[in-house]
Amino acid sequence: MNIIVCAKQVVDVAEIKVDSSTKKPILVGVPQKISDMDKNALEEAIKVKEKHGGKITILTVGAPDAKERMKELLAMGADEGVLIPPPEHADYHVIAHLLAGAMKKIGSYDIIFCGEASIDMFSGQMGPRIAGLLNIPQITYAQQVTVEQNKVVAERNLGEKAVIIESPFPVLITVTKEINQPRLPSLMAILASSSKPIHEWPATDVTTEALVPKLQTMDIKGIPMQRKNIIYQNDLDQSVGKLVDELAKVGVLR
C-alpha cells in the first residue's frame, strides 16, 4: 500500500496577535507547526500501514524551514518526505498543481490522505483540487476509514448526517479532526527519524506548466474583538429580558 500524506506548515494560529492600530495580524516570531488535521491524516495513514504494510510519503509545499516540522512527521511514523519550495506568488491553484505534479512524479499511490482544511486559511480546497487534477475519486470529510482488499469504505461527516461511501484505489481522502488522536513519537522514534530522508524537489521538477496564481490576496486583517461592557444590574427578570433583546439586536440570537 503506497500512501501519500499532504502536510502543510502553518503559523500556530492560537499564538497570533493583532496589531491594535493597523489591525494586521503580527506574524513575526509566531511559532510554526504542522496543521492539525494534517496530523490526523498522517495518523490514519500510519494505521493503514500498520494493518496492510506499505510506505508513507509526506508531501509538503513550503519554505526550507518546514523540514524541521516534517521531521516530526517522520518521527510519528512516515517513511520519507518530499519538500517543494513554492514560487514567490502561490495560491491554491499553484500549490495544488505542485502537489499533483509531485504525485505524478512519485507515480504509484493507492491512497492520498489530506486534512479536511488547513488551520490557517481553512479553504478546504486542496484535497478536491488535487483529486481533480489527478482525475481520481475523492472522499471528503472522512470521520472513519476502513481499508479493505480492493476498496476503501469511509464515513463522511456531513454535519447533521453521516454518509457511508466506498471507492476503489487510488483514492484521495480528506479527514476531519474527529477521525483519530494523532500519536506522539517516542524518544526512540525521534532518534530513528534522523536517518529518514527528506528530498527537496524544485517546482520545475514536478511540473512544466507556467503556474500563474488566479487569486490575489489584497490584504489580511484581524478581527478586532471589543467588549461592549454593558452591565445589567437591576431586577433580574428585567435584566434577562434586556440581555435577550440586546443579543437579538446584534444578531447573536435569532
Partner: peptide, 14 residues
Amino acid sequence: NEQQKMIRNMVREF
C-alpha cells in the same frame, strides 16, 4: 539542537 527541540516539543505536548 534540532533533536533536542523535537524531544522538548513532544514532551510539552504530552
